[in-house]
Every structure is written in structure tokens, then in C-alpha cells.
Design a protein around this nucleic acid. Sequence first.
DNA 1: AAGTAACCACACCGGTCGGTATACTGTCAG
DNA 2: CTGACAGTATACCGACCGGTGTGGTTACTT
Lengths: 197, 197
Amino acid sequence: MDRGELEAKRLTPAGERILSAASALFYERGIRTVGVDAIADAAEVTKKTLYDRFGSKDKLIAAYLEERNRSWHRFLDEQLDARDPQTPEEVILALFAALSDWMAESRRGCGFINASVELAAPDHPAMPTIVAQKQWMRAEFVAQAELAGFRSTGELADRLLLLHEGALVTYRVAAMEHAPEVAHRAAADLLAAWPRV
Amino acid sequence: MDRGELEAKRLTPAGERILSAASALFYERGIRTVGVDAIADAAEVTKKTLYDRFGSKDKLIAAYLEERNRSWHRFLDEQLDARDPQTPEEVILALFAALSDWMAESRRGCGFINASVELAAPDHPAMPTIVAQKQWMRAEFVAQAELAGFRSTGELADRLLLLHEGALVTYRVAAMEHAPEVAHRAAADLLAAWPRV
DNA sequence: AAGTAACCACACCGGTCGGTATACTGTCAG
DNA sequence: CTGACAGTATACCGACCGGTGTGGTTACTT
């Protein structure tokens, strides 16, 4: 996996506190239900400072998703270091195994899917980050599938992505507690049966 | 498939107009962004009438999801009549084939998933309807899998549900246009390889 | 004839929303 | 010494939110 260079803008101490308070609140309670006053309170900062640093709620939302994307990648790197996969197939399966750990801490599913639904407007400044996060997953599946010598890697990656996102959403919406494990088993079977070049 | 008896409460003409206007607006623009004034305007009705019929926005939301659930079942019945599947396996695949048609009309993905995200609060009066819709799909997969004589029908149904919901969500969030077709092919392969009793 | 359900028009409510304005304090580099 | 910058505190804004109250009209029942 490439250790991606997603540079974080440098923030002032108050800026950091705002972003981390916003991240927690946005994820836990939803973007629309959390007002800027609540964020400023939680960060122990005045609204003035919040607007001096981020300009608008929409831009703060965008910063939240970029930050969440960075911590998702950080998390994946840790997981891959810990699991130490030896083959591309094992890398793919490690990505599914990581899902269990990632969701164990957070009852509210995928922050990107949630944001996509809550923001709705396709021209929202945060939308590119959301789509990019999903496209990155697919690209990673393709890359590993190529390395493994699988045939029709595009179709394989699509199916893996369906399982991955399906796990995220059924875990939350259909209350399927074991969704990540089901996805992991399904992915393993899928790889085992997939034709090679 | 059982032709389910999900009785619709009888509504007055104005009530019908309100519900259908609310359904369109809630789905198309999102629940939180649509105010009761906008709904009343669209239905050519006063807010008073809206509150006389539905009592609160939350109850109107619940009515919207129940209505959407009914029309989803109506749609499935039509699709199954048209495709006339001969075996339980064909029924399952017909459910996936129906996805393509269902999503062709609606660019915004699954109304139930969206609602679950937008409402967030687990005790919202509309939540049971949301979870029930997903559980119903899983139960249908289990039932058909039993009929087909598959082994471990629970696991099979879980995997089918992952593909199904995965298609709904990647179509919307990851902009995967062909998600329903991918899910259909994945489901077909899954069934073909699944062990029987 | 009386009652009632279904509607209309319209005005109003308190609360919250994102965002701005004003004025002041501490810190640190040129 | 002097700005520039980061921060505080507080008050305020118009717009919109979900929801209510009053009063009046039609039309179908009993």
C-alpha cells in the first residue's frame, strides 16, 4: 500500500481543538443536528475564532471529512503493519479484517456514507472527499488484484467494494452486528474462486 | 412471495396530496432539508390541514416510510409477475434484477438508508419501519434459500443482503453506475457455488 | 335542522440556525 | 516600539424552523 501524502493544513491550537470537537460531534450526532455553537462550546472557543479559522460551517465539514480520511488511512497502515500480510490476497483480506476493528469503536457506521446522505447537494465542497474515499478503496482492490494475477480485476474490485460498503451499511441500518465478519468470509470465498490469468 | 398485507390508513384527499408531496420531497431533497411549509405548499394545502392529518413532522416522516415500504412491495410484486421466475434461485436473482429498474428512476439511492442516517436517533418513531424493511429482505432470502435446498441459509442470506445493500449505497455514494448489475452477477455466482443439503 | 369532518386563510409563537460586529487582551517577531 | 496575529467576551442579526390559534366555509350525515 502506498503511504498516501494527504497533507493536513497547519492549524493553530484553537483550530485543532475546533476540528477535533467538530469531528467527534459530527460523527456521533450527525452533521445537520450539530450547530456551530455546540462545536465552539465543546472546543472551549468563541464562535468568532471558529469563523476566523474555518470561514463557514461547510468548510469545517470539509475539513472534518479530510481529517477523517487521514485517520482512516492511518488506521489502515497500522492494521497492515500489525497483520503483516504476505501476499496481495492477504492484503485484501486484511482490509476486510480491519473493518471489524474499525466499526467496533463506532456504532454509527461509515462517516463518509453518512455525510453523503446528510449533505445531499452534489456540489457541496465536501463531496469530492467522500467520493474519493470510496474510489480509493476500489483502486486499492484493483491494484492488489493485479499484483495477485487475477483476471478481470475491475469486476473483482467492484464486487469487493459492494461487500465492503454493504457491511458498513447493514451494520448500521439493518442492525447486523456480524456484518464485517460475513463480508470477510464472502471476500475470502470470492478470491478463492476467482480465475487467474 | 407472500403478497404482504401492509394496510394503508385511509386518508382524505388532502391527506393523500400531503403524503405524496412529502414522499417526493423527502426522497429527493432529504428529510431534514424539507420543511413542513414546503410540503404544505407543494400539496396546495395549509399547514393547519397538514397538522390536523398527521399531528407532527415526525409522524409524517413515519407515514412516508410506511408508504415507501408499501410501494416497494408493490414494485417487487410487479417485477416478479413480469419475470415469472420458475425456481427459488430465479426468485432471488429476480430481486436483484429488480434493483436495476428500481434505481433507474431514482438517483438518490435507498430512501430507508437515507432516512436512517438523517434521523439518527434510534428511538425515532420511523426507525422500526426502516429496520423492518431490511429484515424483510433478509427473511425473503432465507425463505427462498430454504425452498431451493441450500445449506446454511442464514449465512447465504447475509451475504446476499450485503451485496444488495452494497449496490444501493455504492450506486449513490461511490457513483458506481453499474452497481445493480455487478450485484446481480455476484449473486448469481454465489448461488451457483453454494452447497446444497 | 343540527352536527361534524374536512378544509381554507392568516397571523403568530418561541427557539434555533449560520453568521457578523465591536471591542479588548496577550504574545511575539522585526 | 510596534504591528500583526491569535485569541477572549458578548451582543446582535435576519431567516427559517416546527407548531398553534382563531375564525370561517363547504358538504355530507343523522
